[in-house]
Write a protein that binds this DNA or RNA. Structure first.
Lengths: 152, 152
DNA sequence: TATTGTTATACTCTATAACTATA
DNA sequence: TATAGTTATAGAGTATAACAATA
């Protein structure tokens, strides 16, 4: 049967969103199998990669608003996957780092995530994958740049 | 400054989601300027394109669960953008169609959406855009196919 | 004054279970 | 029994305003 949404399908924005929402469902299952969610996985990834990171830096790097980070950090912390160490130089801030348990958990989840990631791009050539990744980066930059055009 | 999220950035799934979430913010502004949301826009688009459509068909075409469609249809209907006509052959169902006002509204919104769509792909060649769209379609198909691998 | 983390709040999208009225 | 639309509900992600403690 021919798809009905002919008009929408020619819009990059629609295609992007549609593809992403379908993909997210699959990743969600993988994350859940490791006691993680999309946001806790990405935060854990960055904390593992950058020990000593502060929440404000984490939020900026992952484009997550600070208030929304609180429950994510709480989740990771209550599972014993990360540590919050008081900063010696700034008593307002915490230095985040992964525990041994957190590093192990991330490693296991990451392996499964990589496997799924490979499955969703199955059938794409290396060249096509490369164009895809660069195109997505360019679109992200374009969309960000448009932000400053907004009211105010 | 070098991005911190080196690990994540190599994952297609992360790139996809990140690009989409940033882009969605821009589209949201355009939709809102026309009294629409992402979902009401896509539903209105399909109703304009396919008069007589029923909600179940709409939901299937746009991958929206039936219960979630109710408030979307309500929104469009209360704005006078669509009509719900009782089906002559099935008293459970409605035939959805756009009103003159709805067609006008869609046309106006669509023009702005297309403009934004062109802006977010600015800098991509025709070839790159083509590869992008095909890659996104392939990923969507791959992700959908993986669904049947789930438990149960 | 500005920043760090936090609380409170709200909106959107998405998902499932269960209901009703038809078919 | 199955389907069309609905109600109720819940879980995520995301956004803003305002606060206390600290810089």
């Amino acid at each position: 049967m021919k798809p009905l949404d002919t008009t929408l399908r020619s819009l990059t924005g629609y295609r992007l969103q549609r593809t992403t929402s379908v993909s997210i469902l699959r990743f969600k299952e993988v994350f859940a199998a490791h006691g993680l969610r999309r946001t806790t996985f990405s935060c854990l990834s960055l904390i593992v990669e950058t020990p000593g990171l502060r929440q404000s830096q984490l939020g900026e790097a992952l484009a997550i608003e600070r208030p929304n980070l609180v429950s994510v950090i709480e989740d990771l912390h209550s599972q014993g996957l990360i540590q919050k160490k008081a900063s010696p130089t700034d008593r307002r801030a915490y230095e985040l780092s992964a525990t041994t348990k957190g590093m192990k958990r991330f490693k296991e989840a990451y392996a499964d995530v990589c496997e799924l990631d490979a499955e969703i791009v199955d059938g794409l050539s290396d060249d096509e994958s490369d164009v895809l990744m660069r195109a997505l980066q360019k679109i992200e930059r374009n969309a960000k740049a448009l932000k400053s055009k907004g009211p105010g």
